[in-house]
């Protein structure tokens, strides 16, 4: 994949789900970037990429929200996002969303600077992680949009494999959707439940203590199902997992 020279400064777009449900994972992402010597800027005016409305058929509302983010990232510095799905919305769908709008050029420029966190850690920063943690077996859940919109497939697994005491056991159906799908989970709760049920079974088969993922939608879904089913494994965002490992916690 094409890359860019290592910058001095990056923007961080935290995403609304991280903001409300996984702020520690969001902070961990910031700290991982800082640990590589970068200045991380977190514009306080940010909220959401607009994806929920965009995928529900309310494009005007999505546009309004996306537009409110545009001016928060002036200049050319990369924008790092701890979510494949939100990064995909910004990188892939903002150009469509803004097509024909007066600020289309700006949206395209911003979209072109968006990176998913693990992609950025691997391709731009070429990070080297030293594992300080106890031996643990984990599995990786690939979010659909990280894989298929951002092309992030091997990067997170490569990061996990850098950790000496982490045994990564891959899922049998790694590429299969967990059934979150935004409003899908509540529009079609039974189908979503069946999908996350298959995912939980797949996770259990690996014997992993943790399922690590890069998307908080999936983590709400899978983590919530693991917890409700009183399963041994629990879910964790990859930023937080990596941070804990390199700090020996």
């Amino acid at each position: 994949m094409s890359t860019i020279p290592k910058p001095h400064r990056v923007y961080y777009f935290g995403t609304c789900l991280v903001d409300l449900f996984f702020p520690d994972a969001g902070m961990a992402g910031i700290e991982l970037l800082q640990s590589q010597g970068l200045t991380v800027v977190f514009p306080q005016g940010q909220s959401c990429c607009g994806q929920p409305a965009y995928n529900s058929g309310y494009r005007a509302d999505a546009l309004k929200v996306a537009r409110a983010q545009l001016d928060l990232f002036p200049g050319d510095d990369p924008i790092v996002v701890p979510s494949g799905s939100c990064a995909g919305m910004m990188k892939k769908h903002w150009p469509d969303l803004f097509r024909g709008e007066p600020d289309e050029a700006k949206a395209v420029q911003v979209a072109g600077r968006v990176w998913e966190l693990t992609q950025f850690l691997v391709h731009v920063l070429d990070v080297r992680l030293t594992d300080q943690g106890e031996p643990v077996r984990v599995t990786w859940h690939a979010s659909c949009h990280a894989q298929r919109e951002m092309g992030v497939v091997e990067e997170p697994k490569a990061l996990l494999r850098q950790l000496a005491n982490v045994e990564l056991v891959e899922l049998k159906r790694e590429k299969e959707c967990c059934g979150f799908g935004g409003t899908f989970a509540v529009r079609h709760p039974e189908i979503s439940a069946a999908m996350v049920g298959d995912k939980v079974a797949d996770i259990e088969d690996t014997g992993a203590a943790r399922v690590v993922s890069g998307d908080c939608g999936c983590l709400l879904n899978i983590g919530g199902a693991l917890e409700a089913g009183a399963k041994a494994a629990h879910g964790q965002h990859i930023a937080q997992f990596l941070k804990e490992r390199i700090h020996g916690r």
Partner: peptide, 24 residues
């Protein structure tokens, strides 16, 4: 139905970033 309720974290990432002095 099959999941626990999503738990709000108490403090948002916005709050944490401000508290840690992450530039805006």
């Amino acid at each position: 139905n099959v999941r626990t309720k999503p738990r709000f974290a108490g403090r948002t990432l916005h709050d944490l970033a401000r508290a840690k002095g992450i530039p805006d």
